[in-house]
């Protein structure tokens, strides 16, 4: 494509704003919560040891199990080149699409955890979307690998438990292409410093030139449909149902952060130290606090409408 049209090329390195950025080196991370909570520190060291041992035994990275990745409702889609088994194509405007990514270790707990809460959280959220918005939404779950060329057919993407994310080079390239073209990634359900560090390291591989910035509560993303004036920490189901603590690991304060391109377009919205997905999944549990599930649905709707209009 010739460049003589006078339109500025996107994604040129540049300054994205004056909001505070976060260090990419973990040495500069605040360690006081660890020192104050020695038990947590000990548990952390133990977990790290276990993980290292397992990693040494099992290898550095395990790709996601493709059989798990097979999404429900998959249909053949016709392309001009060939016909392959791909994701649903039909009259729907919106597909709630979950990212399938590779992770460290093996197994659901320590390996790739893209399928956490899947598909119940997705389906329950979809039913809410149908009810409260005019969105033409596909009724089933939809999951897709980051290195799938058809990823870009779905300009909204949801990824969670990214604390153990370990993308392959193909996945990094796929996600970069997706975000450059105009895709929107919503990140959710990862907790504490260690998981932040892992996610940050991974997303830096994708978008090395763009800083991660805080998104204050007066940002339009919190006001597209519902007025959100306070960022809540949505706890995992066990903590919520039993009325205990809402935090996990050292993730005491919920944070909303984002990555913008040089034009100010939000490419990645990050929900750290909170778990919207669990609230969607367990909203039908009479013991799950309505406050959290309502908030999670409202945030989800706001994110989607924002992603579809900005």
């Amino acid at each position: 494509m010739a460049r003589s049209t006078g339109i500025r090329r996107r994604n040129a390195p540049g300054d994205c704003g004056t909001l505070p950025t976060y260090p990419s080196s973990w040495w500069s991370l605040p360690l006081r919560p660890f020192i104050r909570h020695r038990v947590a520190l000990a548990v952390g060291i133990l977990a790290t040891g276990l993980w290292l041992g397992e990693a040494l035994l099992q290898g550095q990275r395990v790709d996601v199990d493709v059989r798990i990745a097979q999404p429900a409702g998959a249909q053949p889609v016709r392309t001009r080149a060939d016909a392959t088994l791909q994701h649903p194509v039909g009259p729907w405007e919106f597909y709630f699409t979950r990212a399938i990514y590779s992770g460290n270790g093996r197994g659901r707990r320590w390996g790739s955890r893209w399928a956490t809460d899947y598909p119940k959280a997705d389906l329950q959220f979809i039913s809410i979307l149908q009810r409260v918005t005019r969105l033409g939404v596909y009724e089933s779950e939809n999951a897709i690998r980051l290195d799938d060329p058809n990823l870009r057919r779905f300009p909204f993407l949801y990824a969670l438990e990214v604390g153990s994310m370990a993308m392959s080079e193909k996945e990094v390239a796929g996600l970069r292409s997706y975000l450059d073209a105009g895709g929107f990634l919503l990140v959710d359900d990862f907790w504490g410093t260690w998981e932040w560090q892992n996610f940050e390291m991974e997303i830096r591989r994708v978008l090395p030139e763009y800083p991660i910035v805080d998104v204050p509560v007066d940002h339009p993303v919190f006001h597209t449909v519902y007025e959100i004036n306070e960022v809540l920490q949505v706890p995992a189901v066990n903590n919520a149902v039993y009325g205990g603590r809402t935090w996990e690991r050292d993730g005491y304060v919920p944070e909303t952060r984002a990555i913008f391109d040089e034009d100010g377009r939000m490419m990645v919205m990050i929900n750290w130290n909170t778990d919207l997905g669990d609230a969607w999944e367990w909203a039908d549990n009479p013991y799950y606090p309505l406050k959290f599930s309502t908030y999670a649905f409202q945030m989800g709707v706001n994110y989607i409408v924002y992603a579809m209009t900005h």
Binding site: M1, T5, I7, N11, R153, P155, D180, A181, G182
Partner: peptide, 24 residues
Amino acid sequence: QDSWMWQMHADIEPDDLTHELFWR
């Protein structure tokens, strides 16, 4: 209903300007 496919389809380079030119 989805002229945005001229921007988001896998066959289109992310920095392709066809969709922008068309709409402008």
